[in-house]
Design a protein around this nucleic acid. Sequence first.
RNA 1: GGGGAGGUGGCUGAGUGGCCGAAAGCGCCCGCCUGCUAAGCGGGUGACGGGUUUCAAGCUCGUCCGAGGGUUCGAAUCCCUCCCUUCCCGCCA
Length: 424
Amino acid sequence: MLALSFIRDHPELVREGARRKGETAPVDQILALDAERRRLVGEEERLRSEQRARSAEIGRSARAGAAPPPAVTAELTTLRGRVGELESRRQAADQELDRLLLEVPNVPHPSVPDGVGDADNAVVRRGGVPRAFDFPPRTHYDLGEALGIFDFERAVKIAGSRFALLRGAGARLERALAAFMLDVATRRHGYVEVSPPYIVHRACMVGTANLPKFEADAFHVAEGDRFLIPTAEVPVTNLYRDEILDGDALPIRHVAWTPCWRSEAGAPGLDTRGYIRLHQFSKVELVAFTRPEASLDQLERLVEDAEAVLQALGLAYRVRLMCAGDMGFAQWKKYDLDVWAPGLGRFLEVSSCSCFGDFQARRANIRFRPAPGERPQFLHTLNGSALALPRTLDAVLETYQAADGSIAVPEVLRAYLHGEDRIA
RNA sequence: GGGGAGGUGGCUGAGUGGCCGAAAGCGCCCGCCUGCUAAGCGGGUGACGGGUUUCAAGCUCGUCCGAGGGUUCGAAUCCCUCCCUUCCCGCCA
């Protein structure tokens, strides 16, 4: 969320930021409620101060052996009632203010271009060269079903639509991809691997801003009011919730390979064919915690770290800077990485790398102490996929297919497959 | 699942109704001392919010001792509910 003081001091920036994202922010309501709250706080505290002082007076005379005069205690009882009444009004205002603050979207960074949708996103660079085929390339689902490495029908029998099942070499290939991605992140780029819980408290979902606005996108576990994670971003960002970290410890960079669950409530009819958009998929996720002044540089680095995987796999891709209108609620600045899928003949989004500024840190209360003795302040959070497994697998299948429908295993994955170099 | 113990500041930990935002120690900061480092000596050091202030500092008021409620003129302290940690027993991959 944004700081109340920021909204108070720059209401126009907040309105403008929301407008650029195509959203609305209840700025006027917040300002009015804030004024009301401060009035109540002042009055409450004045009475409370009086109450404390006079009670202390009784305490002092009690130590001297005097009984409290009934008239005074009666008066203080009345005072307690008035304080209580003001307190509950103030609490109601606090609660409503918190609720409204959670609904204010992050303001896009000035370097984020204007725009309303996909067409306005700017391609900042391309990597790799799309492979030239001397035969019509097939889709991953055609290839995969023929090879017996996808079993969509049985997955639907087990769990319903938008679930998939990998078999044999398909399951092994995905595991090899994940292991390779984890090694790139940990050994080459220095991320610390974590294996977090896949079910989290509501507070974690609020911390990363998946709630309260987007509850319909999540799978809710009734037991204990918890949620299946939609991305490792949620448990990993919340690792340091309610903590004050040592400034010397920053940046902290983690990587996690986890399953992700999404209801895909807003996408009926989209990508229903193939191994593209599922209720459950796995993803290798990078998460970083930085000092405020370092976060935008860290974002560039995060993107490069994700690109490194695509480069090593020999896949063609592009990097796009998302326009304001295509950004999420919580993001300050965001890049997408899209891999070229020659069978489908289109790009597939395999990574989304975002910097949140202190938006998540404020919600999750993650702070750091810049130097010993200094006041704690909110740090900046970032995350990005490196990469989503299903679509990366799709791109590998489609890119490395042979005319006979077999798949060449990319060089870098062979060590993870005990030398297997072809899926046939 | 059954029974016991416990949750206090960055950390350890004292505190059973007012003199407690909280002893002591550690850590950290400033100064002194020392050829440097360490040791030693002295002082300081929680978070959040309101007011004051051009900003900051400062001053001032309030809240916070796991969370929420209650009793009381007054609660870290007494009562209730919940959450969590830990130990023993049971069950279990």
